[in-house]
Design a binder for these strands. Structure first.
Lengths: 199, 199
DNA sequence: TTGACAGGTGTCCGTCGGGACACTACCATG
DNA sequence: CATGGTAGTGTCCCGACGGACACCTGTCAA
């Protein structure tokens, strides 16, 4: 049981990924059998268990179906660093798309994209023009990067704690720490970041 | 028929999205009924048809299940700069929708996600653990951030020009500039960046 | 007032998907 | 050569998922 699944399962996984790219779901055991050339559903079932222990699929929260894990969407580049061959091998048979959206968003109905203005968070690697993924929740804790509402404007800062009171710390020495007077209104917590480079 | 679905369906769609974020699948009609508070499966079925004609879900190629469309993944984009009123207006109906994947990926077949190792690009706001969106192309120019292949390993650097030769500049004073001897092999150009914050 | 339609309820039924289990084929490996 | 674990076959059965259909109810317009 090397961490590496058998080369046959590698191929099976590839076909599963292709199917998923089309249908956005793990197929039924019967269809898996068709896809892989199995004559029996049970083989498909066992394959799913193998892929589960390899970390590519898991049961849904309701335990009524299979779902892909993040590993399922991994793009094949770990191989690349190792192998010395031409870079084109990476293209392999893979055509699927890593769904960035699913990587970043946990609760869609509470999630908003907010564009970043200014460079007050530059030391946290958040630049002007970036988009932050904001999850609307009050449950922010010290150390989180939050979108707060100060003077009726959005502001992006790191939430800190000072003498039992929340403060807003910019990640840029050129900006002052904000110590709110009364209530501090938190709009949401930053859970992700997206940047596009001009090209 | 306004292109806008009823406000009730808006709410239903939100719950469907939340469910999908967890289970990576459109739930069964029965579970939809539970989620939405329907007493009958048929209501769930009709809801699905409504969402289909609104363009949020469609049938799988095998026509044996429902799958989300790209529109299903659209997110609200907060219109921060303009707005001065209460923060809740964003929720309203305003704010355009947008799709992270489409925002970052232009040519899916040429695009690869590459995880970032190390902090050699920290001053460019690229941290260890980030994912960069890499477009495979040879057409890199000075100033681009590129993934190059040096000593059979991927390395992420800024492409620079020095005396007519390409060099690889790290964005971290602790690392040395790389001046490749022979041919410099460019794997691709970084066109985007994705980061997820633990939470 | 009266339709007409959209959204929702209640119920029946066929079938398909998956669990369980016994069995076979094929390596590896000592 | 024996042994054992892994991959795959064949078969049975049950539950639930979804299709179909009749019916109810609020709302809005003519």
């Amino acid at each position: 049981m090397p961490p590496r699944e058998s080369s046959r399962d590698d191929d099976y996984l590839g076909r599963l990924r292709d199917y998923y790219a089309d249908a956005r779901r793990i197929p039924t055991q019967q269809r898996i059998a068709e896809l892989m050339g199995f004559a029996s559903k049970t083989a498909a079932k066992k394959l799913l268990f193998r892929l589960e222990s390899a970390g590519f699929v898991e049961r849904t929260p309701d335990d009524d179906a299979w779902m892909p894990t993040p590993r399922f969407f991994e793009r094949p580049l770990a191989d690349v660093a190792v192998r010395a061959g031409g870079p084109d091998m990476i293209e392999g048979s893979q055509g699927e798309l890593f769904l960035i959206d699913q990587y970043l968003v946990r609760q869609p109905s509470r999630t908003v994209m907010v564009p970043v203005k200014g460079d007050s968070m530059i030391d946290a690697g958040i630049h002007d023009g970036d988009l932050v993924v904001v999850e609307r929740t009050k449950a922010a804790k010290s150390g989180d990067i939050v979108v707060a509402i100060v003077d009726n404007e959005f502001t992006l800062k790191e939430l800190g704690l000072e003498k039992g009171r929340f403060i807003l710390k910019p990640c840029n020495p050129a900006y002052p720490v904000i110590r709110p007077q009364g209530e501090l209104e938190i709009y949401g917590v930053v859970t992700g970041l997206v940047r596009r480079y001009a090209g």
